[in-house]
């Protein structure tokens, strides 16, 4: 079996993009940490033939549900995004507009978009993670992308 370090090295960036897309900037890093801690705990029992990306996204999905429930129980006093250093010097970085557009999607669409377009999972795997049929996962991803493009364009302008 591969050292767990290699799993973090190879998939850490993907999981970060996924939890950012699903949870937004405030909770993403906690979800990343909890995902990899849980993954490390379970790693010795992981089947050699398992799809590691799908396994990690499954764990991240559960952690995202936990975070969302905790958030619903104890709403944050402020919906303000934290100040973060800009990556490119452009003021629209960690793009609040992108998150607002993602946030406006129904949970299933946001998950399907993230798991397909950011994690690269096939719709069959996504259906196993989110529940429902493969076709429903495909539709959720397509509808989600359509809505996202309608509300946000890559020039950084939000239409929400």
């Amino acid at each position: 079996m591969e050292p767990f370090e290699r799993v973090v090295e190879r998939h850490g960036a993907m999981v970060l993009r996924v939890v950012r897309a699903v949870l937004g900037p405030v909770d993403a890093e906690d979800a990343w940490s909890e995902t990899f801690l849980a993954a490390m705990r379970a790693y010795p029992d992981l089947d050699d033939s398992a799809n590691v990306e799908a396994w990690l996204v499954t764990i991240a999905h559960r952690k995202a549900i936990d975070v969302t429930r905790a958030r619903a129980r104890a709403p944050m006093p402020s919906a303000q995004l934290p100040e973060r250093p800009s990556r490119t010097g452009r003021p629209d970085d960690w793009d609040a507009d992108l998150w607002h557009a993602l946030e406006s999607l129904p949970d299933k669409q946001r998950a399907a978009v993230a798991y397909h377009y950011l994690a690269g999972l096939p719709y069959k795997e996504i259906a196993e993670i989110t529940g429902g049929s493969t076709d429903a996962a495909r539709r959720a991803a397509a509808d989600g992308m359509k809505a996202l493009r309608a509300r946000y364009d890559t020039a950084g302008k939000s239409h929400v």
């Binding site: 970060l16 993009r17 897309a21 793009d95 377009y117 493009r149 946000y152 890559t154």
Partner: peptide, 8 residues
């Protein structure tokens, strides 16, 4: 469209 989600 997802470029802003990449890590700094």
């Amino acid at each position: 469209i997802f470029a802003p989600l990449a890590e700094e």
